[in-house]
Nucleic acid binder design. Structure first.
Lengths: 236, 236
DNA sequence: CTCGAAACGGAGCGACGTTCCGCACCGTAA
DNA sequence: TTACGGTGCGGAACGTCGCTCCGTTTCGAG
């Protein structure tokens, strides 16, 4: 928000609990592979790369755990200092692992986003119609976002929406929703000319800023939006 | 955003170009009438109140003009210092007239909101159907919000959505939209069980955070949302 | 054990919204 | 016209934010 460089930082798989190979973001924007341990099948051209330091891994894990806990209690908008303190490290360490606040959020929620993405094809198989599958998937997305109050600030980001969270959603979820929409369009249920990106963005805006007001039911508004897909848009 | 007291500040008619009577916000939340000139019909119990100082009025006007210009060029998220500098006054003067950033925004756009509100009944008379009137009115609202990029931060506010802008919208626009929706429901066009507040809030969220991305058309998404009003919501 | 590179911690930077306080100005009364 | 009292003013200052700089520590290979 302050004086960051304008480069689009590629987010990588910071947490390697599910994949050994990692890529870390260099400040100039080029993604370089981390020299992980030699157990995995990396091309051993230069096997002399030093082993990953143990404190690095420990701190990374501590940061992710702490961030998860802090975000769960204080909301996603919690200050980075708070996360760093909870992890028992300095802020510089946090920023060395996660170049941006948004990157930290992405790392914390990445596997949840993955689960959300993987639910798409499954729903297409189990739900009675493609439109029902689409609606169910969007509701799952809403439920996912709804538990993270204050996500809006991260979702919106600073300048043009080039947050890491935004990139993650576009890369991971837009294709899934696109498949659902295509199927629903093929079945004739969906007729409105709307792209998956537009719909996802709209749902995100709707949910990310929803108040915890009992008079306001986000799910209902999202349902309203998705229902609109079944109609030709009005004339103008 | 920083260390404001949690009191809900009542916004008053800061700019008296259309109404002489003014109320200013006291820090404890109680609205007290400003001692304006005795020309208007105030209860003259204490007519000895000193006349309003001329510099006060001049600065207020300068601030509003400057804020309008700055918001138009730098966006609504422009720093208060910038507005104060453009008006040629100190920040303290700005804060004396507008207790919060959000209050300044409200004061700048108040008459536009009024115009938006007044367009409601008119559209009901000119548009072919109440639903068409509703859609047209919502589109007008979108156009109004769309010109103010960066409004999201103000729209969202800090804690629970108790921004002055929020209060203004709820007090001024919700009744108007309610009338439109009632008419559209009476005509049978709108069947979805949605309140005016819910719809306005959803449209606001949709628009306030819309990117200037050419791939994303807010108007289309809002139309989608309003179109959903014509259908019974899907089962759950 | 030595040593150099990599990682660390926390002070520091710039920007933000908002408040404090000594001084200047305005309007009234003599 | 001048003196005066209080209201309004300006800008430095405060607390917080995301993020960076740099002297110091620590890891692990030789």
């Amino acid at each position: 928000m302050c004086n960051r460089k304008g480069t689009l930082i590629r987010y990588g798989d910071w947490l390697c609990e599910d994949a050994g190979m990692m890529t870390s973001a260099a400040p100039d924007g080029s993604a370089v592979p981390d020299g992980t341990d030699g157990t995995d099948g990396t091309d051993g051209a230069d096997g002399a790369v030093p082993r990953r330091r143990r404190d690095v891994e420990r701190n990374q894990r501590a940061l992710l755990d702490a961030a998860g806990a802090v975000f769960a209690t204080s909301g996603v908008g919690a200050p980075v200092r708070e996360v760093a303190a909870a992890a028992g490290v300095g802020v510089a360490t946090l920023y060395r692992h996660f170049p941006t606040r948004s990157d930290l959020v992405v790392a914390v929620y990445r596997h949840q986003v993955d689960a959300c993405a993987e639910a798409g094809p499954a729903l297409l198989a189990t739900e009675p119609t493609p439109f029902a599958a689409t609606l169910a998937w969007v509701h799952g997305f809403v439920d996912f976002l709804g538990t993270k109050h204050g996500l809006g600030r991260v979702w919106e980001g600073d300048d043009a929406g080039f947050t890491a969270l935004h990139v993650l959603f576009v890369e991971r979820l837009v294709p899934v929703l696109d498949g659902l929409l295509d199927a629903a369009r093929a079945s004739g249920e969906v007729v409105a000319p709307v792209t998956a990106y537009q719909l996802l963005r709209a749902v995100g805006d709707l949910v990310a800023w929803a108040p915890q007001d009992p008079d306001y039911d986000v799910r209902r508004m999202v349902t309203l939006l998705v229902s609109g897909l079944r109609q030709e848009p009005p004339a103008p």
